[in-house]
Every structure is written in C-alpha cells, then in structure tokens.
Nucleic acid binder design. Structure first.
Lengths: 114, 114
DNA sequence: ACAGGATATCGAAAGTTCTTGATCTCTGCC
DNA sequence: GGCAGAGATCAAGAACTTTCGATATCCTGT
C-alpha cells in the first residue's frame, strides 16, 4: 500500500490536456479520479472543504454518511492514498483534513487554470 | 439510459466546495467523476483535448487504446452520457469532440475558479 | 498492568464495471 | 433491392469495489 505525502497529488502526474499520455500517466490520473468517484467520498470532501482547513475527527463521518466504522475507515483510506486528504493522529483519535490545495491541484490535472 | 445534451454538465450539480450536499447532489458528482475514472477514458479525453476542439472519428480510438470496437463504443458512451463529449454522425462514421468547456466545468464542481 | 475506547485491517458476500463475440441497425454504393 | 462497412447494443464472464462482522492494534486513564 502506497503511503501518500501531503504533496503526493502535486507531483503525481501529467495533466490530461497536454502531450499524449503514457499508460502509466493515464493510470495515475485514473487513480485520482477514482478516489473522487463515490458519493460517500464526495460527502467527506464536502465536509472537509466547509471546515475550511480544519481537521475533522474520523468518528464524525460515521453519522454523516450512515455507514459503519470499518466502511468509513475504508473510504478515508482511499482519499488518503490518493493524496487528497491528510491524516493526523491525536491520542486515540484520527483527524482528517483536506490536503493543501488538493482541489486546485486536481483542476491542474484537468488542464484548466488552478 | 439518460441522453446527454451539450450543456448537461453545466447544469448538473452543486459544487463540492459549498453548502452540505444532499444524497442526490453527491450521487450526481459521483457520476461525473466516475466518467473520468478509467485510464482508457482518460486517454480518449487527452486525444480530444489535443485535437483542440476538432472532432475525432470513433474508429481512431481502437488503435489508440488497443481495445475491440464494442469496448471503445462502451467507453465513448460513458463520456457522452456524462456530458463530457459530444457525438456527431457523418455518413456511417461517428465523430466525437470535447463538449464546450467540459474541463473548466468539472473544475467548477471542484470549487476552484473555472 | 489492565480495562475501555477509537481506529485499522482482514475476509467473505454482494454489487458494479469492464471486456468481448455475436448480432443488429444504419448509411452509402452498385 | 442487396451488399459492405461503421458503429451500437446485447449477453455472459472476468475483474474490481463496496460493505460489514470479527479481530487486531494502539492510546489513555486507573
């Protein structure tokens, strides 16, 4: 399993509007969009974006999504591994936040001004 | 199966960075990102974006992707139904092009300036 | 050291998406 | 009309994703 650094997205791949993509570049873009392609993960991001940079406790998402704890943990992992969110452990709680400029960086991949 | 008009994306849904999303809004965003979340479809878009607005014949993608004709047709349909590409039939050939501002509109959904 | 709570990971079942051969439809040409 | 070529659709199998109960790990308070 690939660990993601806060800048993972920034360095991750060539933009879709640009020179012809290799198989690996196309696959890397697929990974980023796949991470966004789920209604529960969209809701998680929506919540983190309205927290305006503040971290949100993993436990808060259980109620927001109406899913069990292992499922919430699974979705948070997908976002973390795509480099879209960061994780910070405080005591036994895990806090998640939007990675720096993640949304602008995804825009960059789409080739529009970020 | 939902038919997509050229403006389908524009009207499709609330941005991810904004007020709390309903289930339907989250699901609509999921549909858009799912359409982008495949390496073959990423390559199709890459090709259409470098054609700079010009339409590309469906048959050209068979070689580009190394997939059989029904599979290419399936991926083009996913993009068409998400409102990301347009289709025009000329004689017995089908030509596909990027929908107007599709990439900028997806950026709009991400909440970054389009 | 132990108990209790929070989160992560595993493994199996259910659901979804992708791929392709076969087939159908439509267009253009003789 | 009848044929050939392009593309769409169908149907079935393979591959992948999502969900959740059970279980493991890690932290805190006593």
């Amino acid at each position: 399993m690939a660990a993601a650094s806060p800048t993972a997205l920034a360095r991750c791949c060539a933009p879709i509007a640009g020179p012809a993509l290799s198989d690996e570049e196309a696959q890397q873009l697929e990974r980023v969009f796949k991470a966004l392609a789920d209604k529960h993960r969209v809701k998680i991001l929506n919540r983190l974006l309205s927290a305006d940079g503040d971290a949100v406790c993993a436990c808060d998402f259980e109620d927001l999504l109406g899913l069990k704890q292992p499922t919430v943990s699974y979705h948070l992992k997908q976002l973390f591994e795509a480099g879209i969110v960061t994780r910070e452990k405080r005591g036994s709680y895990a806090y998640y936040a939007i990675a720096d400029d993640a949304m602008a960086q995804v825009c960059g991949l789409l080739g529009a001004p970020a």
